[in-house]
Each structure stands twice: as C-alpha cells, then as structure tokens.
C-alpha cells in the first residue's frame, strides 16, 4: 500500500465522523423539540459531509479503487477505526448532548491543528470542516450548561451522562505507532498534545453547568485498533443493510 499510516489515520477520523453522524441521525423525527430535531439532523449532515471527504481521500490513498461508499458500507466492525466514544448508544437526550459536547471540544482542537498539516488534502478538508464544527461546539456547550444548571431532573441526567461517558474520552488522547509516525511527518498532531487544552475547555463548561468531572482516569481503549464494543455491530447492521441487500445499488 502506498501510505499505510495515512490510510489508517483517514479511516480513524472518517469512521469517527461516520459513526457519530449515524448515531445522531437516529434522533431524526424523535427529538424532544422541533428545533432540536432540526439541529441534530444538521449536525449529522455536517458529520456525514466530513466523512465523505475523509473516506474518499482514504480510498485514493489506499489505491485499490475503493470508494467512500465501499469503505462505509462494505467493511466489517473490526475494520472500523472509530473511537469508542462515538459508538455509545444515544440513550436519553442528556447522554446524546454530553457525548456530542465531549466530542465537539476534541474535534474542534483536532481540526484546528490539522489545518497546519503538511499533507495538503488533510489541511484543506480540516479547513472546510472546522467552520462547521465551530457551530457544533457552540451549540453543545450551550446545551450542557443549560441542562446541567437546569432543573433537578435535567441536572441528575447530565451528571449521569458525564459519569458514564467519561471513561471513553481517554482514548481520544492516546498515542500509538501510527500517530507517532504521522506526527513526525507533520501530518497530524500527537493526540496527547491536545489533552491539556481540551480539559481546560471541558472543565470550564462543566463547572458553569454545575457538573462534576469524575476523578478516575481509567480509559476504555480499542476503537482505533478495530476492537469495538458490541454496539458498533448493531449500528453497522442497520446502516449497511440496504447496501448489502442490494449489492452495487446506487441512490
């Protein structure tokens, strides 16, 4: 393969936006208010748009003629490289919004850094995507504060969401061989280098939201290496069923 490490990175970020985009789209028609329904659908749409740019580039880098659709619809769970955080189920609105906030805060920093990438296409895609992500961060930050510092019930649910999702955030900042190689080549930042600024942002928002960050540092890992929770299989089954039932179909 032409550039194994770059392909690996492009699937990591492209699969992450794909899986979260699909998760968020599950709310379409079910959100608690019309404005939220529209906002969630728009967020999902942006993420799927980013996925198309990342995965079509991944296909080009791989050089085997696979398109963005081939990569999205014809791979198995163990071939996906998304972070575990984004495959967590939606559960209630508090979990959905908290997951989005923890992700958006990371996504924004990652894209800002990728705009300086030595790889021209990576930097172009990051430039495009970061403008949209600025709105995602604004919205999820806003909602975390409003719901955390809201009613007794919304506060309880938000604190529960932070508690159950926190152990899935550590993976965003772990470095492996691929990260070190690409960072040496100036293509991506070392994931661990983003952690300080991320924590500062997240801590500030959680405190404004009267929410408490869990002390424990245990982190679930594996998504980047293709080791997933059982939730991804169910998500892919639903996302891929049409394509697999009608091979080669276009729409």
């Amino acid at each position: 393969m032409a550039d194994k490490a770059l392909f690996e990175f492009l699937t990591r970020i492209g699969d992450t936006t794909l899986v979260l985009g699909h998760r968020v789209s599950e709310w379409c028609g079910h959100a608690p208010a019309l404005e939220e329904d529209i906002a969630l659908a728009n967020t999902a749409l942006d993420l799927i748009g980013h996925t198309r740019m990342w995965l079509s580039r991944a296909g080009e880098v791989e050089g085997k003629g696979r398109t963005e659709d081939d990569l999205a619809f014809l791979r198995e769970a163990h071939e996906f490289r998304n972070y575990l955080l984004v495959e967590r189920p939606n559960e209630d609105f508090a979990v959905t919004i908290t997951r989005q906030f923890l992700f958006d805060a990371w996504h924004r920093l990652m894209l800002i850094s990728l705009q300086e990438s030595s790889d021209q296409r990576v930097s172009e895609i990051a430039e495009k995507a970061s403008k949209e992500v600025a709105y995602h961060v604004e919205r999820s930050t806003d909602l975390v504060v409003r719901l955390g510092d809201g009613t007794e019930e919304s506060h309880r649910r938000m604190q529960h969401a932070v508690d159950i999702l926190w152990p899935y955030t550590g993976e965003l900042f772990t470095d492996d061989e691929t990260d070190r190689e690409l960072s040496d080549r100036g293509i991506i930042p070392l994931p661990s280098s983003l952690e300080g600024e991320w924590k500062t942002h997240v801590d500030g928002v959680l405190s404004a939201a009267t929410l408490v960050r869990p002390e424990r540092e245990y982190a679930h890992k594996g998504g980047k290496a293709g080791v997933h929770t059982e939730h991804l299989g169910f998500l892919l089954a639903e996302m891929q069923v049409t394509h697999r039932a009608h091979p080669g179909a276009t729409w």
Binding site: E35, E36, I38, D46, Y135, R139
Partner: peptide
C-alpha cells in the same frame, strides 16, 4: 436566537 440550526445547513432560526 431560537436555534443555531435551521431548515437548511446554511441557516439559523
């Protein structure tokens, strides 16, 4: 502002 997002990706309500 009612919402950062609107009927199309480019609009807010």
């Amino acid at each position: 502002r009612i919402s950062q997002f609107g009927s199309t990706p480019c609009k807010a309500s």
